[in-house]
Write a protein that binds this DNA or RNA. Structure first.
Lengths: 209, 209
DNA sequence: AATATATTTTTTGTATACAATTTATAAATA
DNA sequence: TATTTATAAATTGTATACAAAAAATATATT
């Protein structure tokens, strides 16, 4: 049996366990609905239940585990999370228009181009970066943290809801980019909100079948 | 020694411990900066370290404990939290104007009246209710949860920053109430944002000395 | 066969012991 | 005296054992 954790690691085991468990959830190895049993995970990672419990608690707090199972976001969950995202990412887009440097704005355009010409993996990564770079423009770690947590939960659905090639998605990104480049904060905010609403409706449409 | 926790309790001990610890932090019994030592708390509550660890972890996630100490929010923390509150509570005020029933709106006015005529404790409670009722109008549990967590942290400062009788505070509440009563969502949102900005500046002014 | 009840198994919650780490204290050196 | 360095104390991290609770299975009853 190959243990994932070696004893010579410098950081506490529960932190490593947390990261490994989180990865397993996000990469789909532990799909939504999977029962998380402390002893099973502990044996897999070659540690006792104690650090595993800590990591599970953290993931519960983050909303990735609910009642000892990998979360399966409902439509209502999606609506609620997008309701918050709309406001925070809309504001972030306004910040991006007001504060981003020219070269940072050009990076946004590169993401748009990759969205048009890249492979599936490149497109997915570029689309994430497009949003993340804009969120960072808020320069507000509290806000960034809230958005990151919600994005992680929404990310879980990417196998059910293939969103990277949703119609108009890249066009919408380009429009947002153009508003930011034109330093039109109000328009950037409005377009980001519209864009996220389109995303939400796509999720709801695919899930509601 | 009188133990706070009895063994006949129905819910897990770590949940009780969490609530008791949280109360002690919020009511000032454990002021900002206090070192939280697992064994000490465990002895006080008559349980082992295990459930105490769980509750401390939860309070760490919530931001009430940072590095084993009761949090002491910095000016930057305040700015960041208010940045988020502005957006979410502004939106909530708009919802209140659009969706609240007449009798719910009249409750808001009662809070304003208590703010003018009540005792210190009555005023503090009414001011909290004024915000909480508006936040609930968002009807978005994700949003409500985020705001509640930030309010808890800000609440810790109430001994340092006596805000319940800040100049204009009740007048601002009344203006927000009037906009909601007039079903003017846009104005309610704008006034709530202004109101929270005034709050923030008051905190920053008192802290920056 | 369907429902209820008892029994077993699994899983979680808690206490405790000890190891690893961090923090505080004392001693030594410049 | 101030600053290192060594030592001791306090505190946290981890493993483990057992109790409590929950879940699953089998048995009995209608």
């Amino acid at each position: 049996m190959k243990f994932v954790l070696e004893s010579n690691s410098s950081r506490p085991a529960y932190h490593h366990c947390y990261e490994i468990l989180r990865d397993k959830i996000l990469n789909g190895e532990l799909p939504g609905g999977t029962k998380i049993v402390e002893e099973k995970i502990a044996a897999e990672l070659g540690v006792s239940r104690t650090p595993i419990r800590d990591s599970i608690r953290k993931l519960e707090y983050e909303g990735l585990i609910v009642k000892k199972r990998v979360v399966n976001p409902t439509e209502k969950d999606l609506r609620n999370m997008f309701g918050v995202r709309l406001l925070l990412e809309g504001y972030s887009a306004r910040c991006a228009a007001n504060f981003l440097k020219e070269n940072e704005i050009e990076k946004l355009y590169e993401y748009v181009e990759i969205g048009r010409r890249g492979t599936k993996e490149e497109i997915m990564s570029a689309n994430e970066s497009f949003h993340n770079d804009i969120v960072k423009a808020s320069n507000n770690p509290v806000m960034i943290d809230i958005i990151d947590r919600m994005q992680a939960i929404i990310y879980l659905l990417r196998k059910t809801v293939v969103i990277y090639n949703r119609p108009h998605l890249i066009d919408e990104h380009e429009e947002i980019y153009e508003a930011i480049k034109a330093r039109d904060g109000e328009r950037a905010e409005m377009l980001m909100k519209k864009h996220l609403e389109m995303d939400l409706n796509f999720y709801l449409h695919v899930m509601g079948r």
